[in-house]
Design a protein around this nucleic acid. Structure first.
Lengths: 372, 372
DNA sequence: TTGTATGCGTTATCAG
DNA sequence: CTGATAACGCATACAA
């Protein structure tokens, strides 16, 4: 019944046991040669390595190692949207970037997962993938279910800019405060007639003027927080929602705002830099100079490709750090330590796209929020 | 020595064996209940599921399953650049999108890997991650080494727009032909004074006018192929290289081209839509109308955010399909079948950004490449 | 339809 | 510094 061990070597792919046997050492010694987890005599080491090369053994099988270790070295990143959509957003890619860095430092890789309810039956999910932990980005609504699946597995979870409830560490911005600060800056420049271009209210991505009723139903935490922060300073601002964080969406919103020369705002506060870039383009299209005729502020502090010479007035968010912090939190949870939620602070940046309100004598010096 | 099995259930996380035992069935039956790979009596099924719920068993451990099956359900996607950079390119994200779709259909997830030579010692790599196969995007130069590591492991590999040599299936475009077709279109419109704005020549990303000598040293396959295709029609075209596929890079290149009113080209052929968008912006900046004063063509056929009303004349490439095809190829290789390299065909699209050369009486009808 | 028996390839533990 | 041993948790071939 038991096959000749030497013969077996020929057929199967070599295993560490084969290497050990041929090298005349025990499997554990061979294992240590590859893992480096214990000192090995140089001679033994060399011999094992030589045999390995000879046998075409390329190192421990990660699958077997992960079973034994109880760790796969893989962390899932779950996105709500289609990848195409997710990666259109510079903030998300920056966050992902920090996250991959943070996880790589931990020795973990990133498994991209889309929280798609109607994916193929055997598509990998948070519930079935060989992962050690999960990071949820922009978690809301439906993702809740999958969240419970992960937690049932006892896997550490962290969310970025989303609400997973209670005891799940959360990495987020001081969206409200930062928005308020921008609004104060704009107000300090003498603007009184201000419009807001918001991110989507919910997954419907409805565009256009928003009534107070609609505003009350906003389900996207980021949108709601920033808008609230702005309305604190400009309670009567006109609010226009965009269909996404895209230049062209900002362009659409801007056209709407600048359509009627009689009702033009003197300043537009956009909830993202991309939207702001679109608004600026709409302004230029309408023959308005920025910031002389209309001021425009953004949010994010990303490098907007195609904005030309303008420097956006914006709230610079530490997107990469946010991602890295999520990675750190995962590391802590994996180590069995508790991980706290973190609120990141945006840095107000005065650019060249905001200036004194037309007809206002106010200088730009009164530009910071109280207490800053 | 042997611990009370019932007591063990309390401490450890429940395994399928625990569930089977408590439910009074054999492990194999319990296994089948979860995998669905064989019919199970409804009563048995229910009982097993009930016990599982009771014990907090959430399904087979993916790590153990993958060891047993010899498959992890994970495919690595290796990028040369930082994620931030890679995902700035709409073509790459579209490709990734198709790829993830294709792999999901296969039941595999995507592990994002950056081919970083100086990553942490225990960072996951193509050589150590529990993957079933790998896709290399934009493979060139250094990635070769890691490639050999993967092949040594006997894992299937596919490359997208890169050269991994000989026997590695490759997914690529008919870059040269498509570029030629665009050039023919431009030539048919009467243009004789044409400039080319290229993608980077190599990893140095040097900007500016390129001498024939520099052109001969291009190491990026895509850049070289497209340029060659264009120069076939316009051997004397001025060639300006950009530092990346970005609107702002196109803007820079465009400014260079339009700087001297006396030496302006009447048409600019850009190697990507983003570059073309930048060139258009430079043209408008210089007071030139597109296409009346200058024609601009791109390459890719992506939706350029912020291009406004213009529709680019371009070669539309099937980026998503390219990714999906890579996924399919992986599936075939995994099944033990051979996978062929595929050359995708771009579709010429005449937009509103190209028109008759100023002072030329030529109509736009002669717009296709011979044989199309 | 269900149960039995093996082994997937490692690595941690502990004794030498 | 090295070796023996025992899991890790599961899925399949095969027998019943």
């Amino acid at each position: 019944m038991s096959p000749d061990p030497e013969a077996a070597t020929v057929r199967r792919r070599a295993t560490i046991a084969d290497v050990a046997r041929v090298a005349g050492v025990s499997p554990s010694t061979a294992s240590v040669v590859f893992s480096g987890k214990a000192p090995v005599a140089e001679a033994t080491r060399k011999r094992v390595l030589a045999v390995a090369a000879e046998l075409g053994y390329t190192g421990p099988d990660p699958r077997a190692a992960s079973l034994r270790r109880g760790r796969s070295g893989i962390v899932a990143v779950a996105l709500e949207e289609h990848l195409r959509t997710a990666f259109l957003d510079p903030i998300k890619t920056a966050t992902m970037d920090g996250l991959t860095d943070g996880l790589a430092a931990l020795g973990a890789g990133v498994l991209l997962l889309r929280d798609d309810p109607d994916a193929g039956a055997d598509a990998p999910t948070l519930a079935t993938a060989p992962i050690d932990a999960a990071v949820l980005i922009g978690c809301s609504g439906r993702m809740r279910e999958t969240l419970t699946a992960v937690r049932a597995r006892g896997l550490p979870v962290v969310v970025i800019e989303g609400d997973a409830g209670d005891d799940v560490p959360r990495m987020e911005l001081d969206n409200g405060e930062a928005a308020t600060q921008i609004a104060h800056h704009v107000r300090g420049l003498g603007h009184r007639d201000v419009a807001v271009v918001t991110l989507p209210f919910d997954s419907d991505h409805v565009r256009g003027d928003a009534s107070p009723e609609r505003i009350a139903t906003i389900s996207t935490p980021v949108t709601a927080a920033r808008l609230k922060g702005t309305l604190t300073v400009f309670p009567d601002a006109r609010v226009v929602s965009a269909g996404g964080s895209l230049i062209d969406e900002g362009l659409l919103a801007g056209r709407l705002l600048f359509a009627d020369p009689g009702e033009r705002p003197t300043a537009v506060i956009a909830q993202s830099d991309l939207l702001a870039a679109g608004v600026i383009r709409a302004a230029e299209e309408a023959g308005l100079r920025v910031p002389q005729d209309v001021s425009v502020a953004g949010f994010d502090g990303i490098a907007v490709d195609g904005l030309g010479a303008h420097v956006l007035t914006t709230a610079v968010q530490p997107a990469v750090e946010k991602g890295r912090a999520a990675g750190d939190a995962i590391a802590r949870l994996l180590a069995g330590d508790p991980a706290a939620s973190i609120r990141f602070t945006c840095t107000f940046r005065e650019g060249t796209t905001t200036g004194p309100a037309p007809g206002s004598a106010t200088s730009a010096s009164e530009n910071a929020a109280p207490g800053t």
